[in-house]
């Protein structure tokens, strides 16, 4: 059995782009993280999988081996945490009890399960507080607790730790590690993705890539410069550079935006590194080069320019790209 099996599923989510899933499966027990920048379609993908959006076309779309039928899907056992959870009127305990009320759970059992969950999400002292007066992190914990208390067999989590305080982050990560429930989680945070999931996928402009995208670099930002683990100093686009302070950051470079030249260019491109060609392969009429500049960067060049450059392995070249070509994840 597969939890999800999607082939060629299309969903027009805005004028900007279409969510287009060529192939995606989720096996029982599998934990998958999806990373991608804002607006890449992560939330839409989760909503599609929770049957909250109707695809415009699909070749195959099954859930627990049952074919998708709009408006007829049984969501039993499916736990969904939205990025901005909606908490009901009433207090914390009432919010936690809500999913249990429909399962024929006895009052006494509800009380004990709510109490146990309050401890797990570390909100026991706030049980009688109005849910909507909690802080952002507490609200997120409560919302996750409200999902987990129904004992779901599959979790769809949209950015569970984005913009949270350290304590809430820790509580949520502990909760997610502590259970073996299959999950699909979207996140900005690649480290978190690797900690919580077995498989990390990338979503760019509505398309899932089977592996991490090329040229994903993480490091520490100081002002407008990102210093990677290998010491590469990358100039960031102006809108990021304008933000003050330091933070850990992940960026991505489109392989097509890298310019390869025998010698460093005198141009407006602010990023320029020297490195050695360490792999050359041809794919789809283009040539894919891997260049080791401390970090390994992948560049895609046309066949014509490849021949013009007369490259070979181990040859030293310059890699240049604009600050604006850096995508902050």
């Amino acid at each position: 059995m597969k939890l999800y099996d999607l082939e060629n599923v299309r969903l027009q989510c805005s004028d900007r782009f279409t969510l287009a899933i060529d192939a995606f499966t989720l096996a029982p027990g599998e934990r998958v993280a999806i990373v991608g920048r804002n607006g890449s379609g992560k939330t839409t993908l989760l909503r599609l999988l929770a049957f909250l959006e109707t695809p415009s076309a699909w070749d195959r779309f099954t859930y627990r081996d049952r074919p998708y039928a709009p408006g007829r899907m049984n969501r039993n056992g499916l736990g969904f945490l939205r990025q901005q959870p909606y908490l009901f009127r009433g207090n914390v305990a009432q919010n936690l009890a809500y999913p249990l009320k429909f399962k024929g759970v006895s009052r006494r059992e509800i009380a004990s399960r709510v109490e146990a969950m309050l401890a797990m999400i570390d909100l026991a002292p706030l049980a009688d507080d109005a849910a909507r007066r909690l802080s952002g992190g507490e609200q997120k914990r409560l919302a996750l607790g409200r999902v987990l208390i129904g004992e779901p067999q599959l979790l769809l989590l949209d950015e569970p730790i984005a913009h949270l305080d350290g304590h809430s982050r820790a509580v949520i990560e502990r909760l997610l590690h502590g259970n073996g429930i299959p999950l699909l989680v979207t996140t900005h945070d690649l480290h978190f993705a690797h900690r919580v999931a077995d498989r990390v996928l990338n979503l760019t402009a509505g398309r899932i890539s089977p592996s991490l995208p090329e040229n994903v670099l993480s490091g520490r930002r100081t002002g407008g410069v990102l210093t990677t683990g290998a010491g590469l100093e990358i100039h960031l686009p102006p809108e990021t550079a304008m933000q003050n302070g330091n933070e850990n950051l992940m960026v991505m470079l489109d392989p097509r935006s890298l310019v390869i030249s025998p010698e460093p260019l005198t141009s407006s491109m602010r990023n320029c590194f020297r490195g050695r060609v360490c792999s050359i392969r041809e794919q789809g009429g283009n040539v894919w080069l891997e260049i080791d500049c401390g970090e390994r960067l992948t560049a895609i060049v046309s066949r014509a320019s490849y021949e013009e450059l007369a490259l070979n392995l181990n040859r030293e070249v310059a890699v240049s790209f604009k600050a604006n070509a850096v995508e902050v994840l």
Binding site: A50, R75, L78, Y86, Y98, P99, F102, K103, R146, G150
Partner: peptide, 16 residues
């Protein structure tokens, strides 16, 4: 203002 959000949330939490 809230209907879609509340209805989805309640439905996802198992409400009929």
């Amino acid at each position: 203002e809230n209907v879609k959000l509340v209805h989805e949330e309640a439905t996802l939490l198992g409400a009929s």
